[in-house]
Computed example of a mutant assay.
Amino acid sequence: MKKVLVTRAVPEMALGVLKNVVKSVANIEIDHNYIPDSREEFLKEVRDTHGLLVNPLNVIDSAIINAAEKLEVVSIIGVGFENIDVKAASKKKIPVAFTPILQKAVAELTFALILTLSRGITSADIYVRSGEWKEPIPIIELGTDLSGKTLGIVGLGRIGSEVAKRAKCFEMNIIYYDIERDYKKEEELGARYVSLDELLSSSDFVSLHAPLTPQTRHMIGKKELEKMKPTAYIINTSRGQILDQRALYQALVNKKIKGAGLDVFEEEPVSIDEPLLKLKNVVFTPHLGSATTENRMNMFLTAAQNLGQALGGQEPKYQINPKAV
């Protein structure tokens, strides 16, 4: 029987699903434990572990990977893998797998934030609840159409492409910036490739969908925000560290841009003392990008399948480091 450590307490039904999926994929039985609370316990527990089922918040560094003498796979329930020392895993020929299937859920939340900002839904809700609505025609700030507006997408990967598909339905003009130009997607999505500077200065809505790397950390800061229109909005459903929150706060209070929608933050959970929380022209959600019932179950099943394939000696379907094995 092979041992698997799971990153957090999950319902017994989910653990039953995990066991059944691994058995159906690899025809092997697994035992499971939750990862201990302390790092010292974890380093001890991981020594005879064959598989790790983790989420993007769990740090699996070289010390843990090197301590895991029997480790055969690290399977992430999520799309981000900056928390995993992939180089250390590759050096030991351990596959690292992830679940790049959350793009539609994140794209839908992205558009929920765009619509909330463009039509002032949060303030309108407060207005109705407060009892201030006294006249047939409400005295409230008007929203803005999406049709004919320009959406600038930073990162036209899986999620950025799904956002572009939805923008087409709203008759928006789509421009994008990425480190690599994709002519096929441009044709499919009706998107136009531009420099980051042009994207920032031309867009009515800027939506961030880049992965977090040393190069993308704070890629949108004071200088970049000052290039945006004073009527523009910025939306971040990727990683909080891509957008400099201090610079964003200054841009908002100084009316350099009109508003922002944030699902991610530089530090999570966000502190109650975060200055952005006091602003009315920002809409917040608590990292809900993948948080739908259907998507979370699919992510769990995919992570379990990746785990089972690796434990059975196969290559996981969604492997980050295929050349390592």
Rank of each mutant, 00 (worst) to 15 (best):
Ala105Glu: 03
Leu243His: 02
Leu156Lys: 00
Lys165Ile: 03
Leu189Ile: 12
Gly78Phe: 10
Val154Lys: 07
Arg217Val: 09
Arg158Gly: 06
Lys93Pro: 11
Tyr249Lys: 00
Gly148Ile: 07
Lys149Pro: 10
Val253Ser: 01
Ile137Trp: 10
Asn298Leu: 01
Met297Asp: 14
Gln245Ala: 05
Pro100Val: 11
Val10Gln: 09
Val96Asp: 07
Lys44Gln: 13
Pro56Gly: 01
Leu15Asn: 14
Pro211Gly: 13
Gly155Glu: 01
Thr110Val: 08
Ile272Arg: 15
Leu200Pro: 07
Ala304Gln: 07
Ile242Val: 11
Ile94Phe: 06
Pro136Lys: 14
Leu113Tyr: 12
Ile101Val: 01
Ala124Val: 08
Ser201Leu: 07
Tyr183Phe: 08
Thr122Gln: 13
Thr216Cys: 10
Arg119Thr: 13
Val73Gln: 10
Leu199Trp: 06
Glu40Val: 10
Phe111Gln: 04
Leu102Thr: 08
Ile114Pro: 06
Glu69Trp: 00
Lys255Met: 01
Ser161Trp: 05
Gln309Asn: 12
Gln250Ser: 08
Lys70Gly: 10
Arg119Lys: 08
Ile175His: 05
Ile257Trp: 02
Ser195Ile: 03
Tyr233Ser: 12
Gln215Asn: 06
Arg192His: 09
Asp61Val: 06
Ala247Cys: 04
Pro138Trp: 14
Ile114Val: 05
Asp145Gly: 00
Met219Ala: 01
Leu288Glu: 05
Thr150Trp: 03
Asn281Cys: 05
Ala164His: 10
Phe170Asp: 13
Ser201Asp: 04
Lys165Asn: 05
Gly155Phe: 02
Ala304Leu: 08
Val17Ser: 14
Asp37His: 00
Val96Met: 01
Lys184Gly: 08
Leu53Val: 08
Ser123Tyr: 08
Glu135Ala: 01
Lys92Arg: 15
Lys184Trp: 03
